[in-house]
Design a binder for these strands. Structure first.
Lengths: 113, 113
DNA sequence: AAGTGATGCAACCAGAGGGTTGCATATTGG
DNA sequence: CCAATATGCAACCCTCTGGTTGCATCACTT
């Protein structure tokens, strides 16, 4: 797990429609090659610079990968990180539900005396 | 599934530390009773009004539940929604990874001739 | 060597958002 | 009925952020 930053940052990163559009475009692209900021800007209705900023956020959140290839920089979507984040959320939710279950069973015991 | 709004809104809601603090406080509380905005404000270092706004966001995102009890309003954390959201994320991540796997296997086939 | 295309950095703008204070309103308890 | 407590609503402030334009830079191609 290379998940460097806090999950909260990752959720904040996922809390923006444009960023999802970027992620989906990256997921659609050839993972081996990746996509450049310019290529993404061609597909989406915002400037290259705006895309670049989103990519910074996504990379800081660990949801995206980049490598320099000559004069361009190729980005890839990291599905595994998304999966890990999802599992984390799932565990937390389950824990909360479990607590609810315990309370319910205690209440049941009390009722029965 | 009562998940009304878009998942993006839910992620945005989860992209704030204070909101996590609120959620955790709610998860710690007795689920049957819940907590009021005032009670939460007593536990956290922000105003009741700030808490109230966060609760609006969390409820709109479907992560929190509320019911009026006399003159007060009790909030509960909905762990199940969190779990569902987590599963969703997991599925998307897995799909992206699967695509990566397909590409890899195609490449392998091509190499073998 | 020169032109072209891609990136990076900086300034700037407008709107959203987290936070506060203040006040009005409603409901409970004596 | 009256006082106390909890909520709701509104205005306001400041920061963050998504977006833009403009310019400098750097690497590939011819």
């Amino acid at each position: 797990m290379v998940t460097s930053t806090s999950p909260v940052a990752a959720f904040a990163a996922l809390g923006d429609e444009t960023r999802w559009a970027v992620l989906e475009a990256l997921a659609d692209a050839d993972p081996a090659a990746g996509l450049t900021a310019s290529a993404l800007a061609a597909r989406l209705p915002v400037t290259r610079q705006a895309i670049a900023k989103h990519l910074v956020v996504l990379e800081a959140a660990g949801l995206v990968d980049s490598r320099a290839v000559g004069r361009e920089r190729r980005y890839r979507a990291l599905g595994a990180e998304l999966t890990a984040l999802g599992r984390r959320l799932e565990r937390i939710g389950d824990a909360w539900e479990a607590r609810l279950g315990r309370i319910a069973s205690i209440a049941e015991h009390l009722e029965r005396g």
